[in-house]
């Protein structure tokens, strides 16, 4: 076999080579494993293409065009002029999936940022400081976990709905409902991460390097943030990645049921809101394209998260 023929040479070469290069860092090793993960690379490429789609697309079409309605061309099937067809009031579905995608991704990213912050904070306090704080926070986490997330999201959407004013940012107006959705997804999806962080802090705080840091006079704050947190980072990163996929789906569910982002701001979910009626009329393009984009994005993120898990934690078993 080819491998045995070059083995001796290779070992010699490798040794010479190794003495020249810098030793591999942990991050470098992780990147190496990640690159070899075929699914993860596919996921990365899919996401790259999707981001190119919503960025380049917004250079081609303006937002005003995406919201421009022309009732003379309503519910037109896909054509050369409107490749994805037009919706009930004659807006181009192609242009709306571009701007809708931006909002969907912004919502997903910001809500995951919020839920990671809440989840990590609660997990750290419960796991590191323990005692009363631990039991109170864990009972609270259990309480949130005892209700189906979707029902909780719908209740919260109703609770916050209409209370947040519209926001003008970077020359664009964002419906207040966008902020509402970010808040409620952030407020409901931290539970899994809180438990994860708590359990890694419970193990890590007993280890020798923490003892050493304390002996050197490090404060609790330094130990928690500078010594333990980097060691607990890998599962947080994986959970954050997969959390983005989850947030995109959750936004889609809420908006599909009409409690999410309100018109004229589009998201992939809200574009499909009236789709049930369109089904029996045979207007498949109204719901097919936004849904397809959701599936591709979520699939790409899931591939990526899977690769990230294998890269960051080589001991973890793959399901």
């Amino acid at each position: 076999m080819a491998a045995s023929q070059r083995s001796i040479d290779d070992v010699v070469n490798l040794q010479q080579h190794d003495s020249l290069v810098m030793p591999r860092t942990l991050a470098g090793l992780a990147w190496m494993r990640f690159r070899r993960h075929r699914m993860a690379m596919v996921g990365l490429i899919m996401l790259g293409l999707l981001i190119a789609y919503i960025v380049i697309g917004s250079l081609v079409f303006t937002e005003a065009f995406a919201n421009f309605n022309n009732t003379r061309i309503r519910v037109q099937p896909p054509s050369l002029e409107h490749p994805f067809g037009t919706d009930e009031i004659g807006r181009s579905i192609l242009a709306r999936t571009i701007y809708g995608g931006q909002i969907s991704l912004i919502i997903a990213l910001l809500s995951v940022l919020l839920s990671i912050t809440i989840g990590t904070a609660i997990g750290v306090i419960a796991g590191y400081y323990g005692k009363l704080a631990d039991s109170v926070l864990m009972r609270f986490t259990e309480a949130v976990l005892s209700l189906p997330t979707l029902l909780l999201l719908l209740v919260m959407a109703k609770f916050f709905g209409g209370r947040v004013p519209d926001l003008a940012l970077l020359g664009r107006t964002f419906s207040g409902s966008v902020i509402v959705i970010i808040l409620i997804i952030g407020f409901t999806s931290w539970t899994y991460l809180a438990r994860l962080v708590r359990s890694s802090y419970l193990t890590l705080k007993e280890q020798d390097f923490v003892l050493a840091a304390r002996a050197l006079g490090a404060s609790d704050r330094q130990i928690v943030l500078r010594h333990i947190l980097p060691n607990a980072m890998a599962p947080i990163l994986v959970a954050a990645t997969l959390g983005i996929a989850n947030a995109i789906l959750q936004e889609a569910y809420i908006s599909f049921l009409g409690l999410g982002v309100q018109a004229p701001t589009a998201t992939w979910g809200s574009m499909m809101q009236g789709a049930t009626g369109a089904i029996t009329r045979g207007q498949w393009w109204l719901w097919f394209f936004p849904g397809l984009l959701i599936v591709l994005t979520v699939l790409g993120i899931n591939f990526l998260g899977d690769g990230l898990r294998d890269a960051l934690d080589p001991r973890s078993q793959r399901g």
């Binding site: 789709a275 089904i279 849904g291 599936v295």
Partner: peptide, 26 residues
Amino acid sequence: SFILYSMPIFWIALSLLWIFAVTFKQ
């Protein structure tokens, strides 16, 4: 499994409706 797992349930429902209720009828 990966693909199905990435689908919103309403999109599956709409697709099934479209195939088995609408297209079949046509």
